[in-house]
Amino acid sequence: MNLFRLLGDLSHLASIFILIHKIQTTRSCRGISFQTQALYVTVFVARYIDLFFRWISLYNFFMKIFFIASSVYILYLMKYRYRPTHDPSIDTFKVEYLVGPAVVLSLIFNYKFEFTEILWTFSIYLEAVAILPQLFMLQRTGEAETITTHYLAALGAYRALYIPNWIYRYFTEDVVDPIAIVAGLVQTGLYLDFFYVYFTKVLQGQKFELPA
């Protein structure tokens, strides 16, 4: 564990709290992509299946439980509690285009051709692109509530912070995980446009609006 990874994980935690807070205070999941949230549940379940056979640390254990539980809870909020506030007609990204390639890639590029190992790899590839339905929705509507942009910024910061973590681990532990690194770089790259608008507009006190 190093500072970058810890800050990354805390940022990830924060993003989830911000999202739940947004849904509960506005009593609405408007502007949130159900598809992206469903992909995150898939990612966490596929990756954290190792809860059953690999012990890493108490920290790791509780974080995994939290990520699975909170992501399922968010789906519940969107699907049942605040269902009428979700508009499926603007959440139309075809997730098959993300899940399909993630399955194929994980079968080809993995460290070991074993079921749980392939699930782990699949989760890494899927997570890299899971934000796309959300970004696509943002693009379509052209605007977002400020709180939603804070959620996205915290989520993007989490992956961005993992990059210095990998550099640090390379030098201090001689650990290199090319699958995680390549997917992580792609994932962080997807946020660049968003970050640009976030820093130049939202953090200057303006509303998040994309040019028409």
Binding site: D9, R54, F67, Y111, Y162, V175, D177
Partner: peptide, 10 residues
């Protein structure tokens, strides 16, 4: 070695 690849990140 099971833990060779680590997977100790979240």
């Amino acid at each position: 070695d099971d833990d060779y690849y680590g997977h100790d990140e979240l």
